[in-house]
């Protein structure tokens, strides 16, 4: 991973910089956006209107060049451009002030396009039953902090617990799994990271293999007709997870990542609608996902 090009890397570096500077300059929340220079919010794969007006739907855009620099030989093809995502904000009401406040406290998450509902709470006292209550969010706010929040000074002998939940986009694809990504600073100043699978669809049959990895959820995508079916995956995932590798002396961050089952990418819809033959290396499917703002732990 290019150290200075990714969000996760920045979050890790922030932990280290806090030791040196006394403050963490990379304590940011996550939002998604489209980067569309068309003035249109077209983040759906089946309605991607291009990032620029030159890439509006046409039979040519599947094989066209987006940008090419003859001096460096670097080239980006139109098919590599993504339809991108949305910013999701947990605000108490749909007013400008409330939305702003939510963004300031980082209670936001990013999606790559679909409108999943994602919850991520951290605290010291969550129990498994909390995930099954009528209103898990109410328990989340009462017993812990929401995404974007901070935990400090672990109580003696306790590890942080996380109440997580995700609901699929009502018009979209089922969910595959919910992961928590942890980054931490070891005692000898090294930055580490680990991805944990905390909840997944079809849990009866799917169990982590010998290598600790979950078997894939399944792929229902038919590229030729640009369709998928919700016959795999789950519409809702919710659980409480405790960090099994917690060290109260190590600063850390945790963020939630919800992943959908595979779905057709805009390239598949284009190929079907215009009958264009895609170039050999074109990516035709995508697994959409959501990233929550982190919760930071400071000893």
């Amino acid at each position: 991973m290019l150290e200075f090009e990714y969000a996760r890397s920045a979050l890790k570096n922030g932990l280290k910089l806090e030791q040196e500077l006394g403050t963490n300059p990379y304590k940011f929340g996550m939002v998604g956006s489209t980067d569309s220079h068309t003035g249109l919010a077209t983040a759906e794969e089946d309605n991607f209107f291009g990032k620029i007006s030159a890439s509006e739907p046409s039979p040519e855009r599947l094989t066209a060049t987006f940008v090419a620099n003859p001096a460096t030989g670097k080239k980006i093809m139109d098919w590599e451009v993504s339809s991108a995502g949305y910013a999701a904000v947990w605000a108490t009401e749909n007013t400008r002030a409330s939305l702003w406040d939510a963004m300031q406290r980082r209670e936001t998450y990013a999606t790559t396009g679909p409108r999943m509902l994602v919850r991520f709470f951290g605290g010291w006292d969550f129990v498994a039953q909390d995930a099954n209550s009528r209103l898990p969010a109410q328990t989340g706010y009462t017993k812990g902090v929401p995404m974007g929040g901070e935990l400090r000074a672990a109580p003696q002998g306790k590890s942080p617990t996380f109440l997580v939940a995700a609901l699929k986009d009502p018009l979209g694809a089922n969910l595959d799994r919910y992961q928590i990504v942890k980054g931490w600073l070891t005692r000898d100043g090294k930055l580490e990271e680990k991805v944990y699978d905390v909840a997944w669809a079809d849990a009866e049959r799917r169990r982590p293999g010998g290598d600790g990895k979950l078997p894939p959820v399944g792929d229902t995508v038919d590229v030729a007709s640009a369709t998928w079916t919700n016959t795999v995956g789950a519409p809702e995932l919710a659980t409480v997870w405790t960090d099994p590798d917690f060290d109260p002396a190590q600063p850390a961050f945790y963020y939630g990542r919800g992943i959908e089952i595979p779905t057709p990418r805009w390239t598949a819809y284009d190929a079907k609608r215009f009958g264009t033959q895609p170039l050999p290396s074109t990516v035709m499917t995508i697994t959409e996902r959501a990233y929550t703002s982190p919760i930071w732990y400071t000893p």
Partner: peptide, 12 residues
């Protein structure tokens, strides 16, 4: 209504 009903992430 406390104690009645199943989880609904959309709220009540």
């Amino acid at each position: 209504p406390e104690g009645h009903g199943d989880r609904l992430l959309l709220g009540d």
